[in-house]
């Protein structure tokens, strides 16, 4: 970029405009907000993903309490050869008691069901699996996490849509704000603009003067927002141990990338506003200044 002389920069100073001076603070705040939103979105996605993997990789088979070890063994042998089944574990009585406790009276004498915890992979043929179980244990229940998964997926999607909507609003608001600021700033500097044009400043040069001032503030705003966001993530990580699993590389990137994207939006908006405002200042019938 063309380097500008200090006095040329001083000649068209948008810094006098109160809104323009607030630009840095606005960018820090909105950039941070949008960054945190995006980071939260990605973090939530990660949480959901990890949980989903966990849910998907286990199938529980509930057998009647009176099932004999021999019958169970037969089932195990039949199941383990189904493609996609990795491992089968028989839960011991204590774990089962713990699992079903919430649904049972404490001193109940009801016999406990037998539970098989089957570890599976993605390519499991569920139909074959279910058919095999039911051929040996017609009354067996196969715990299916799919319905639950769908509810959670819908919830996650809703949250993501909401965050996305808020972030979009932030971007639009900032773009409008910058546009308005540049326009009013140039409007307020008609005299300086006219004098600069009298000594030979082109619209390109004047645009450059505007862009340089916006860029200066946008950089501070972006860096500020990124630092603030990163500090917040760091704080979360330090306070909750479990957090670090979800604060993936992408989450950290988002906290920096979003303010950067915001800066691009600000620059484009400022450029567009400066160009249109300046080109509308064509020589009028009675001159620019009268």
């Amino acid at each position: 970029m063309l380097r500008l002389d200090l006095s040329a920069r001083k000649a068209l100073s948008l810094g006098k405009d109160a809104v323009f001076r607030l630009l840095v603070l606005m960018m820090i705040f909105l950039g941070w907000l949008a960054g945190m939103g995006a980071a939260g979105l990605l973090g939530l996605d990660e949480i959901y993903h990890q949980w989903q993997l966990n849910q998907k990789s286990h199938v529980s088979v509930y057998l009647m309490p009176d099932s004999t070890p021999r019958q169970i063994e037969t089932l195990e042998e039949a199941l383990i050869i189904i493609p996609g089944v990795r491992d089968i574990k028989r839960l011991d009585q204590d774990s089962i008691r713990q699992l079903v406790q919430p649904y049972l009276d404490d001193r109940t004498s009801l016999p406990l069901p037998k539970i098989l915890d089957v570890k599976v992979v993605e390519g499991l043929d569920r139909a074959a699996f279910d058919a095999q179980v039911h051929s040996l244990f017609p009354l067996a229940e196969i715990d299916d996490a799919r319905a639950m998964l769908k509810i959670v997926a819908d919830g996650v999607q809703l949250a993501q849509t909401a965050v996305f909507a808020v972030a979009s609003v932030i971007f639009i608001v900032l773009a409008l704000l910058v546009s308005l600021t540049v326009r009013s700033g140039l409007q307020a500097q008609q005299r300086s603009l006219a004098v600069l044009q009298y000594v030979g400043a082109t619209n390109g040069f004047l645009t450059l003067l505007v862009m340089q001032q916006v860029l200066q503030r946008a950089i501070i705003g972006t860096v500020g927002a990124a630092i603030l966001g990163a500090a917040c993530l760091w704080g979360l990580q330090e306070s909750y141990d479990s957090m670090s699993t979800y604060l993936t590389y992408q989450v950290w990137m988002a906290i920096i990338a979003v303010p950067l994207a915001l800066m691009v939006v600000v620059m484009v908006s400022a450029y567009w506003s400066a160009v249109t405002t300046l080109s509308q200042r064509q020589v009028t019938a009675d001159g620019i200044t009268s």
Binding site: L4, S7, A11, S192, V199, G200, T202
Partner: peptide
């Protein structure tokens, strides 16, 4: 330009093409 010094005002035409 009221916010530029005498020297800056005089320099203005020379600043359009860089420092």
């Amino acid at each position: 330009l009221p916010h530029l010094t005498v020297k800056e005002n005089v320099s203005l035409p020379l600043t359009l093409t860089g420092p």
